[in-house]
Amino acid sequence: MQRRDFFKKLGTAAAVAAVVPTMSFAASAPKPTGPNKMDFKTAVDVITGGKTPKKSSKVKLKAPEIAENGAVVPVTVTVDSPMTASNYVKAIHILNGKNSNARCIDVFLTPANGKAMFSTRIKLGGTQDVTAIVELSDGTFLMASQSVKVTIGGCG
């Protein structure tokens, strides 16, 4: 029994010794933060002005499920809308879940576009959700989101 206890103690001590230095290092050297730091919730509040966006099948977000390289992730947002002068898509916002700045791009469309579609390429720091929030001309907010698995992070 004594021998067994000794090995148990040795094991826990070794585990603690292995964990503690990495923890202290992480605490002493915080990651540099970008100039426009904003987390996901405040970004949504800023865009919608306190309203909660509804999930809708009208908004289609196309992004790869697995992105090998997080530096270039193609994202396409399509909205089912007639795009007439009275009923059109006012804005498309593309957001990410975990980057230091949650906002990627805000696109403000007009009826002269003809079709409500926008596509671009974004950077993702790790596996996270990509969200599209769409503002219609009558003031309602719709959203769609999809998780993207990133094998190599693309930020920094």
């Binding site: 970008g34 426009n36 530096a71 270039v72 992730v73 396409t76 990410n96 980057n99 700045n101 906002r103 990627c104 791009i105 805000d106 696109v107 403000f108 469309l109 002269a112 576009n113 003809g114 079709k115 409500a116 579609m117 926008f118 596509s119 671009t120 390429r121 974004i122 950077k123 693309g154 930020c155």
Partner: peptide, 17 residues
């Protein structure tokens, strides 16, 4: 468009007109 730094290097903006 208002663009933030989370866009990729050499970005592309595609839409209809």
């Amino acid at each position: 468009m208002t663009v933030w730094e989370s866009l990729s290097v050499n970005p592309v903006f595609t839409m209809y007109m």
